[in-house]
Design a protein around this nucleic acid. Sequence first.
DNA 1: ATGAAAGCGCTAACAT
DNA 2: ATGTTAGCGCTTTCAT
Lengths: 341, 341
Amino acid sequence: MTVTIREIAKHAGVSRGTVDRVLNDRPGVKPEVRDRILEIVNELNYVPNIAAKALAYQKKPVTLGIVMPPKEIVFFELIRSGISSASEELKDLGVRLEYRYVDNKRPEEGAAAIRELVEIGVSGIMFSVMDDELIRESINYAAQKNVPVVTFNSDVEDSKRVCFVGQDLHKSGVVAAGLMNRVLPAEAKVVILTGNLKFHAHRARVEGFKQGLKSSGGSLQVERVIEGFDRYEDTYAQLNQTLSEHADISGIYMATGDTDACLEVIKLHRKEGKIRVVCNDMLPSVEQGMRDRMIDFTIVQNPERQGYLSLRLLFDLVFAGKQPEMEHYFTETHIYIPESL
Amino acid sequence: MTVTIREIAKHAGVSRGTVDRVLNDRPGVKPEVRDRILEIVNELNYVPNIAAKALAYQKKPVTLGIVMPPKEIVFFELIRSGISSASEELKDLGVRLEYRYVDNKRPEEGAAAIRELVEIGVSGIMFSVMDDELIRESINYAAQKNVPVVTFNSDVEDSKRVCFVGQDLHKSGVVAAGLMNRVLPAEAKVVILTGNLKFHAHRARVEGFKQGLKSSGGSLQVERVIEGFDRYEDTYAQLNQTLSEHADISGIYMATGDTDACLEVIKLHRKEGKIRVVCNDMLPSVEQGMRDRMIDFTIVQNPERQGYLSLRLLFDLVFAGKQPEMEHYFTETHIYIPESL
DNA sequence: ATGAAAGCGCTAACAT
DNA sequence: ATGTTAGCGCTTTCAT
């Protein structure tokens, strides 16, 4: 027999209303009664019935806030589709979603969005904006107001967010190294392209790659690590220079940065098909590069799942009181080749 | 405003009971009334509320049947874990699962299981047993009794199953060819290992591989296609012979078959690390082979997702009347290398 | 501080 | 053939 709120009430010799108050941390219950009820709840191993809760919430649905970049940011497209799947499943379950689209490079917008969502009374927040002190403060403010925050895609470290769902950037790099090792001959020379090594997120892949090369006992040489600062021109100029100076470069790991710039330089040097290219993510430019057979591999970390899982975790937490089991949920690392498309 | 059964009743000038009868195809409604109600249902775009249904079904849950191999068949482990995730989500939603474990090489067991489940009154069935005429008949029998069947992992073609969830075997082969092409030099010789070319499932990967080699304009040569009939000895003997006769084999595509036999032969010929090996699936023997760096790649088709999706589709169908959108749901093709583990 | 009762949308048993 | 009603387990409002 599944144990209901009614059973608890009977055991405790109180009404269902009182039990409900205790279970939902509502005021107006004598501490000793509260304790006794909680004891019984534990003893009987009570678990709330989702369907019943959902039905009761129909009139005044629980609201979950989502803060992320707007539709124009194509990188988030698949994450959005994962969120959609989850929200489809939750459609009838007494949940409403409240979106706030912000520039994910503008911490102040993200921080403000969190506070606003807390003000309007959301029960939980999904959040993806570049890490920053302002944001940390907002997240902690939400936490203190009992509004749990799940970060996704990019984490806000040392904040009071309940968990993070995203990529294992270091592992991307390790896997990229494994691929290079298999497609290039011994002693071959490779170049790493990244954005800005000051950012942890950019550094992690590069470090993973280097470590991967080492630990696999490979003999590949990293000729240079280029910081392109996510700009076409910088990337183009530096890579161009490098390829000019080193005609024997046979692999490029595009850890972070402008794919188009990279491919243009390869064309300029007439190295199509001669230089092996490993990328990350499946942006339109990467997909095109694969179709054109200029990119050999791209490493992807299940963005749909990031979206789906974050929302699901948040729902389970606020609706069933189910605490996330981990602090970091890393989505699986997958490898694509042109034939995978 | 979401439209409820009550609204429909009001519009039609009947009671909620009658509407319920119509919506659930229960007898005892005058045809003209039924038609009128259905019209209104369409017009108002009525969608049943899952939470309410689930709650009402608490006492007498809807039962879904699952026919698949028992725990000993390790291949299904991940599929099972996907089923578990889905059933976790559906726990409170008025659904009960009824398992029948059968040898998936024994169609008569599978066919009997379907009939039995239909007899005991399940509302839908998930099914995975090798294709066979007996099974086709059972599935059609179930369909005729209004019990939808979703096949997963291996399809039962030309049957009245509502849809199939599983791998795109042909694509596995194409992707394998893409990998071989990237890691082997031009003109290299490869061997294909399969089970029994009489089986469509075994043939599909082999054909995909060959076609992949061709269409990518590669120059690799398929030296031989070995049928190992899923037996260690046959595989061992034939591969051994082939490697003895052709010292220049530099790639093996393990489309289907006994991985251990394959690896043993490679060791025997001291070709560890010299012959590139591409496998399918992530069986324990494959995983071990990767850790030992004897297998370079394995191609996997999201078995968890197969389990999850099949159950979810079945639930949506019987619970919300949502017809599957496709007849074939192919799970995504993923590539793993040792560093992915 | 606590109890009682109505209601969320749907099903099913019982009436008519 | 159709209407009425009592739940399903939880929330919430209104009494006490």
